[in-house]
């Protein structure tokens, strides 16, 4: 088993908590893991990414080679496209369709979404709306995205949700519950759109 994942978003959106949950589940599975993060200046509202590598064999490079990523998980649609060179020919894009507008020259959103749809394996979802529907607070939107990515992660759904429960346990049962609801909402959405497309 080997999964190379690029997590993308805008500084402050919470891509690292997605990585934390996947990492927790991967370690429980006994997988090797490397995760390169971006700290420092770009965390101030700039583009941020994290390279997350999981494998049943030891991993050498902390960075994913171009053309090598199995999956881009992005909390922002234009940010998903920023790393497209890294996506392998059969790789998947799982992205929120909600733009983060903190720059004056953000391109036309429909054009951005069209470019994502032009790549055959993609799941686009409104993580904020799905979080709300699931009764989860807006901070849990990243867990909706995580849920949507589970079918492509190569880790079983139950193992992932157990990871979510462990990570949020210290924040209390209520927080665990809403985050699990968010994960489930994303997972269901992904399964649905996956079926439609395949």
């Amino acid at each position: 088993m080997k999964k190379d994942i690029i997590l993308a978003g805008v500084g402050g959106q919470g891509i690292l908590s997605i990585a934390t949950v996947i990492g927790e589940a991967a370690l429980q599975e006994g997988l090797y893991l490397k995760q390169a993060e971006v700290h420092g200046m770009s965390q101030r509202g700039g583009d941020v990414q994290s390279n997350l590598r999981l494998s049943s064999e030891p991993i050498m490079s902390d960075l994913i080679p171009k053309g090598g990523a199995d999956l881009i998980i992005s909390l922002e649609p234009m940010e998903a496209l920023r790393y497209i060179e890294y996506l392998s020919p059969e790789g998947w894009i799982v992205s929120s369709c909600v733009p983060f507008l903190n720059i004056p020259d953000y391109p036309d959103l429909e054009a951005v979404l069209a470019r994502i749809r032009a790549h055959k394996n993609h799941v686009l979802l409104d993580v904020d709306a799905l979080a709300k529907e699931a009764g989860a607070p807006s901070q849990a939107a990243n867990m909706v995205l995580l849920g949507a990515a589970i079918p492509m992660l190569g880790i079983e759904y139950d193992k992932m949700t157990a990871g979510v429960a462990r990570i949020f346990a210290r924040k209390g049962e209520a927080v665990v519950k809403t985050n699990l609801a968010a994960v489930e909402a994303g997972f269901r959405h992904s399964k649905r759109s996956h079926l439609v497309e395949s």
Partner: peptide
């Protein structure tokens, strides 16, 4: 080089900000 997809021209820079 490994085969890669072409860069997406639509993507613009997102510099950090206060």
């Amino acid at each position: 080089a490994l085969p890669t997809r072409e860069k997406e021209a639509i993507v613009v820079g997102r510099p950090p900000a206060l």
